[in-house]
Design a protein around this nucleic acid. Structure first.
Lengths: 183, 183
DNA sequence: ACAGGGGGAGAACGTGCGTTCTCCGGGTGG
DNA sequence: CCACCCGGAGAACGCACGTTCTCCCCCTGT
C-alpha cells in the first residue's frame, strides 16, 4: 500500500474515532484496527499520538472551513451569505454522528495539557472568526457585528453538541437576523 | 478528622485539580496529595473516581448558579438583571485560574464515554437556560429572547476559555442589549 | 497496662495503553 | 534457486493510574 494512501486511511480512521469517542479514550490499537494499517507503519507516518491528533485537527480544519465556504458561496448576496453560515450549521448539526465542535471538545480534553492542541484550537477559531468578519465586511456592515455573530455560532455549536439538537442553529440564525436588521 | 471535613477537603482539591488540568489527567493520587486525605478514606467517601467527578460537578453547579443569582439580584430592575448576567460573566472570566466552563470542558472530555457526566452537563445547562428564561419572563419580554441570550452566554464562555480573554463577555452583553432594545 | 480497632502511609495489583521489538512470509534482484 | 529486505501481525515492555491490601501507629475503653 502506498504511503499516501496509508496516511489517508489512518487519518480517516482517526477522525472517525477521535471525533466520535474523544481522543483520550481511543488507543493507537483502535486506530490500527479501524485503518488496517499496521502499528509499525502507523508510527512511521506519525511518530507519536500527539502528531496524529494534530494531523487530524489540521485536516479537519481545512475540510470544515472548505465545506462552510462552499455552502456560503452559493448565496448570491453578501447579506444572505452571513445568514447562510447558520443554515450550514443547521445542516451540520443534523448530520449523523454529529457530536459538537471537534475543536471545542478537543480543547476541553487536551487544552490544559497540550500546548500544541490548544494552539491549533485557537488558530481554528481565529480563522472562523476572521471568515465571519470578512463576510460582514463584504456586506458593508460595521465590523463590530462580527464578534456577536461569532459568539452566536459558538454558542449554537456547543449547545447543539450537548443537547443533540439542531434547534440552536435556527435560534442563532434568528438572533443574527435581528442583529443585522434591527426593526 | 471529621468525615464531613474530609469530604469538603477532597472536593476542594478535586475541584481545583479537575477544573485546572482536566479530569482525566488528574490521578486519584494527586487528589490525595492535594487534600491530605488518605486513599483509604478517599475511597470510603467516594467509592470510585466517577462518583468524585459527579460530586465535584454537582457542588460546583450549586455554587456557580448561586454566585450568579446573588450578583444578578443586586440589580433593581428586571431589565438590568438580564444584562447583569453578562457583567457577571465578565467578572468570572477575569478571575485568576479561569479556564472556561467546567461543564463544557467536562463534556468534551467525558461526554462521549460517561452517560452520568453527560446527563449532569445537560442538567446544568438546562438550569442555566431556565434561569435566563425566568429573568426574561420577569422583565415581561417575549420568551423567544431567552434562547439567543443563552447562546450568546455559551459562546462567550467557550470563547473566553479558549482565548483567555474577558472580551467576549462585553461583546455578548452588547449584542444582548441590542436584542433587548432594537433601535 | 493492654486489647482492639480505626485510620494513615504507601506498597501492591491489575489493567490499559503508548511505543518498540521480534518473528516470519513473500516478493525481488542476481 | 537463493540471499535479502520490506512490511505485517502481534507480542512485549514500561509506565501510569484506579483500586485494594498490608502494616503499623495511636487512640480508646476498661
Amino acid at each position: 500500500m502506498d504511503s499516501a494512501v496509508a496516511r489517508e486511511r489512518v487519518l480517516d480512521a482517526a477522525e472517525e474515532l477521535f471525533y466520535g469517542r474523544g481522543i483520550q479514550s481511543v488507543g493507537m490499537d483502535a486506530v490500527r484496527g479501524a485503518s488496517g494499517v499496521s502499528l509499525k507503519r502507523l508510527y512511521q507516518l506519525f511518530p507519536a499520538k500527539e502528531q496524529l491528533v494534530e494531523a487530524y485537527l489540521e485536516r479537519r480544519d481545512g475540510r470544515w472551513r472548505g465545506r462552510l465556504a462552499a455552502f456560503v458561496e452559493l448565496r448570491p448576496t453578501p447579506e444572505e451569505r452571513i445568514l447562510a453560515v447558520f443554515d450550514w450549521l443547521e445542516e451540520w448539526f443534523g448530520e449523523e454522528g454529529f457530536r459538537g465542535c471537534a475543536w471545542i471538545n478537543s480543547y476541553g480534553e487536551l487544552g490544559a495539557t497540550s500546548d500544541r492542541v490548544a494552539a491549533q484550537v485557537r488558530a481554528h477559531k481565529r480563522a472562523f472568526a476572521d471568515y465571519l468578519a470578512s463576510l460582514v465586511a463584504a456586506a458593508g456592515r460595521p465590523a463590530a457585528l462580527a464578534g456577536p455573530l461569532f459568539l452566536l455560532a459558538e454558542g449554537a455549536m456547543v449547545t447543539a453538541g450537548i443537547t443533540r439538537s439542531t434547534r440552536p442553529a435556527a435560534e442563532a440564525r434568528e438572533a443574527a437576523r435581528l442583529l443585522l436588521d434591527p426593526r
